[in-house]
């Protein structure tokens, strides 16, 4: 199934599966968290079979450990490739972060220094992943709460260098750009100005929490805020069309509410 360049999608979440199967939701595509289906047993995979028969699906990962010091997990990659092939996923994405160390999985998206020494290391790993999977590999920017003394360039410069050197793609998360811009005090429009829009596979949108101390926390538990929609308008003007996906992972509301939220994108960009 094809995904239109201006398609709107949502992340597939368990509370919505029955609703998505009982009617044909007006949605351009669904994004599947790979790790929810690789190791979870028979039933989640059986439901995914039904979903994929009705909707185009793309794959998204949270465990690749792209910027980790440990070797890439080939067993994991093999299973991701099987998933990508089984459902004809046109692309796969994961994050510009690390998520494991010392043999343990941290189940978080953790930042590494924006150090030029890391660029060839990460780019080689990303290129390997793309070649291994056999589909375009999108690298997603993350929300972060700390910056490192080793940082020698802005995040967007590091990101662009990795994308360029790996011949991979951007999975551009606009909420993450905004969250990090507030947390670290940079201009999100400068970030957008650095993006190679011809290399953008897809855009992510999500809601985040504003803590009492002003720190922005990437929680995916609420609607997208006005500032992030404004950033989306700028992004669309600079590089649209691109497939747009809403992530809602916690305090997940009923499907119609999630669909209404992502539908706002169509009005914002006109």
């Amino acid at each position: 199934m094809n995904i239109a360049r201006d398609a709107l999608g949502i992340g597939l979440r368990r509370p919505h599966v029955d609703a998505l199967l009982s009617e044909h939701a007006p949605i351009g595509f669904l994004e599947v968290i790979a790790e929810n289906h690789l190791d979870a047993g028979s039933l989640p995979r059986a439901r995914l079979d039904e979903i994929a028969a009705r909707y185009p699906v793309v794959g998204h990962g949270v465990a690749l450990n792209l910027v980790g010091a440990e070797p890439l997990d080939l067993v994991h990659l093999e299973r991701v490739r099987e998933l990508v092939r089984a459902y004809g996923m046109p692309w796969f994405s994961d994050h510009l972060c690390w998520s494991a160390s010392g043999g343990h999985r941290h189940h978080d998206l953790l930042p590494a220094p924006y150090d030029p020494e890391l660029v060839p290391y990460v780019a080689a790993r990303a290129r390997f992943v793309q070649d291994f999977l056999g589909v375009p590999f999108g690298i997603e920017n993350l929300s972060s709460y700390v910056a490192w003394g080793r940082d020698q360039m802005p995040e967007w410069e590091f990101y662009r260098q990795v994308v360029d050197a790996s011949d991979c793609w951007y999975m551009l998360d606009l909420n993450n750009i905004y969250v990090s811009s507030v947390n670290h005090g940079f201009d999100p429009l400068a970030y957008l100005a650095s993006v190679r829009w011809d290399r953008v596979l897809q855009v992510h949108m999500a809601g985040h929490l504003v803590r009492p101390d002003g720190l922005r926390h990437d929680t995916h538990d609420r609607p997208v805020c006005a500032e992030v929609w404004a950033l989306y308008r700028e992004a669309w003007a600079l590089g649209g069309p691109f497939p747009t996906l809403l992530e809602w992972d916690d305090q997940v509301p009923p499907l119609p509410e999630v669909l209404a939220e992502v539908a706002k994108a169509a009005s914002v960009r006109t």
Binding site: A69, P71, L72, S101, P113, D115, F128
Partner: peptide, 19 residues
């Protein structure tokens, strides 16, 4: 995989401390 470069030597200690 053998062609992939090694990580910078400072990366693993940093990540292990964080972990």
């Amino acid at each position: 995989m053998t062609s992939l470069p090694p990580p910078p030597p400072w990366l693993a200690p940093l990540q292990e401390a964080f972990g």
